[in-house]
Amino acid sequence: MNIFRLVGDLSHLLAIFVLLLKIWKSRSCAGVSGKSQILFALVFITRYLDLFTNFISVYNSLMKVIFIASTVATVYLMYIKFKATYDSNHDTFRIEFLVVPVGGLAFLVNHDFTPLEILWTFSIYLESVAILPQLFMISKTGEAETITSHYLFALGSYRALYLLNWIYRYYFEGYFDLIAVVAGCVQTILYCDFFYLYITKVMWGKKLSLPA
């Protein structure tokens, strides 16, 4: 474990709970893409199948349980409890256009052609594009609530910190995973446009609105 990965995991945890609290407190999921949340739930479920078979540490197992539970809870709040506030008119990204190619790629490019490894690879590839429905929804509505932009900033920062973690581990531990690094770069690059808007607007107290 290193500081980049620890801060990255905590940033990820923060993002998930900021969103969960926003929906729970405001009793509304306006401006939030349910499709992205479904993809994140799929990412965690396919990645943490080894939760019971491959014990790494208490921290690792605890975080896996928290990530799965909180993301499933978010999907539940959005599609069941506060379904009336779900903005399906703007959450129109066709996620099958993500899941199918990512699934195919996971079969073709992976470290080991075993079910667990292919599912892990699928999860890594899917996570890199899972935020697209959310970014697409913001581009359609033209703006995002401030709390939603904080969620996105924390979520985008987590994988950027993981990139630093991989640089650190490469030099100090000789650890390198090309699939995770390439997917992590794609994932972080997708946030660049948002990071720019966040830093130039939200940081100065302005609302995040995309140039019309």
């Binding site: 896996k64 993981y162 995973d177």
Partner: peptide, 10 residues
Amino acid sequence: DEKQKNKDEL
């Protein structure tokens, strides 16, 4: 095995 052990990241 070694590969599986390597999966120590979230």
